[in-house]
Every structure is written in C-alpha cells, then in structure tokens.
Amino acid sequence: MGDRKVVSVHDRIPALREQRKKRANRRVILTISTFFLLIGIVVYFQSPLSHIRSIEVDGVVTGEEGEVTVKSGLTTGESIWAADLNSAESGVEELPYVMSASISRSFPTTLHIDVQERERVAYLEENGSFVPVYANGESMPDQSLDQLPGDAPILYGWEDKSQLDMFLSELEELEDGVANHISEVHPVNRDNDVLRLYMNDGIEVETYINNFAEYMSTYSLVAEELNSSEPGILHMKMSPYFETFANPEEEEENGEEEENTEA
C-alpha cells in the first residue's frame, strides 16, 4: 500500500473533459462530412457529371460500331446509372452476327460494349453479290461483298430456307479442316437434298444434306488416295467411291468407230 500512487479526482477532470471534447468534435466532423457527401451525391446524380459522354464498342469486325450502338438503345446525355444495361445487351444480341454482348460502366461517364461475333459459315450468291450467312441461319444483305470471298464456302442456287438451315447446321458440325476445303456448294436437284461441292484442291464431290457432316468427315483421308488429275466425281456417302469421267478423246474415237460400222 505504501508504493501505490493515488491520483486526485481534481487532477483527472481536465483529461476527461479533453476526451469528451475530442469525441464531440469527431461526431461533428462525421455529421458534417456525411451531410456534404449526401449533398455531393445528389448534385452528381442531378447534374451532367453523371451523364454518358462516350460509348465505346469493342470486338466488332463484321458489322458497324454505330449499328451496335443504335441497337443498344444507349445514348449520350442520359444518366449512366439510369441506363438499363441488361436491356441494352439484349438489343445488341438481336443483330444476326452477334453471339453475345456485355456492357459495363467505366467511371465517370463512359460505357463499354464488348461484342462477340458469330462466325461467317458461308456466303449466299445473289445476283453477283455474296451475302454472309451465320451459323444461326441469319444473313446480312447489307454486308454483301462484290468480290469473291475466300473465308467460307459460297452457296449457289439455294431457294429452300428450311434446307438451307439444315445444311448450315450440318456445316457447323463439320471440322474446320474439312469445311475450309469447300469452295462452292450447288444443289443438284429441286429438293436441294443432293449437293455438288467444288473443293479447293480441285476435287468435285457429290453428297447429301442429311448426314452431311458425317459423310464429309472422312474427306481428307479419302482425298489423299485419289489421283487429283483424273477427272471424275467423288461420292461422299455411306461408302465413299470415285466415279471416273470418260476421256473426251476416247468418246470421240468410239463415236467415229460406231459411225464407220454403221456406214
């Protein structure tokens, strides 16, 4: 007890008062800061500071950035926080060549539209122009090409939309290695179920729409066994076989022999 220090109540009162004063000051500062923060938020939302000033589009190769922006329904000048981004994404995804769209806010006044495009799986030949066609069966006449494209097969003489959709579905299942070999596709009959293909390696192929992907899957292996200089048609069906064309000179000679015999 002799070593214990005794502090007078009168000595502690100033320290307690100072602590209470500091706590009171902190509360006042916090209250004032919150007040001005709320005012700032209200001013921000009510002023042009929160309006969209720019809309940036990424990932567009096939289409036009302006077209994507229009389909989104987003415009500069509206509140960046009031914009319905889900609805805007759905609008962009209505474009035939768009597989998916993602829109995000970039503080303070910019919106980013990221687009993932569908692949062009073929081109429809229409009056000398080539209309891109996508895996979902949609086409874009506005993006027609005047020059012969080389990145996908060209479809000639297609009139039956249901058969075209079936073919595109089969084409999408075909491996890229084989699909990239196809240069032209022509329906052979009125029903469009028999197809004549002209391949980039010079081989002429006949096959069906039904089971097209299955029948053409072995094309590369079969083509390796063929003499590309020999004229004929490769039938890619359940059991592939090569039909040789008759030599024109031989046909001429046979024709002359028949005429001499008849004479």
Rank of each mutant, 00 (worst) to 15 (best):
E258I: 15
Q116Y: 03
S106H: 10
Y215A: 01
R4E: 09
L85H: 08
A83F: 05
E173K: 15
S169P: 01
H235P: 01
E172C: 00
S228F: 05
F36K: 02
L174N: 03
E214D: 12
V57D: 09
S100T: 15
E89A: 14
N247L: 08
T261Y: 09
G137K: 08
S79I: 03
S54G: 01
L74K: 05
I209H: 02
G2C: 02
P14M: 06
H51K: 14
H181I: 07
D165Y: 03
N227W: 00
I80F: 07
A24P: 00
R20F: 13
M236W: 11
P108A: 04
V98K: 04
G59M: 06
N25R: 15
V57K: 10
L164K: 15
V185W: 09
E173P: 01
G128Q: 10
R4L: 09
I13D: 00
K21E: 12
E172Q: 14
L37M: 12
I13Q: 11
E257M: 12
E243K: 08
G73P: 09
V42Q: 02
L168N: 06
I209F: 02
F130P: 00
E184M: 05
T62I: 15
V133R: 13
V61H: 14
V28R: 12
H10A: 11
L226R: 06
R120Q: 13
L174Y: 04
L124R: 10
V115D: 05
R190P: 00
S54Y: 04
I154Q: 03
T109V: 08
A263R: 11
P48D: 11
L148F: 12
E184V: 01
S183N: 11
F167N: 08
L226M: 08
Y123G: 07
A83M: 03
L38P: 01
S220M: 13
R27C: 06
L30K: 06
F45N: 03
E78G: 07
L171R: 12
E251R: 09
M140L: 11
T207M: 03
S169L: 11
Y97T: 01
G255V: 00
R53C: 03
A152F: 06
I29Q: 07
E18N: 11
E252W: 12
I209L: 10
N211V: 00
M1P: 11
P187E: 03
L174C: 02
A223M: 01
L197Y: 07
A88G: 04
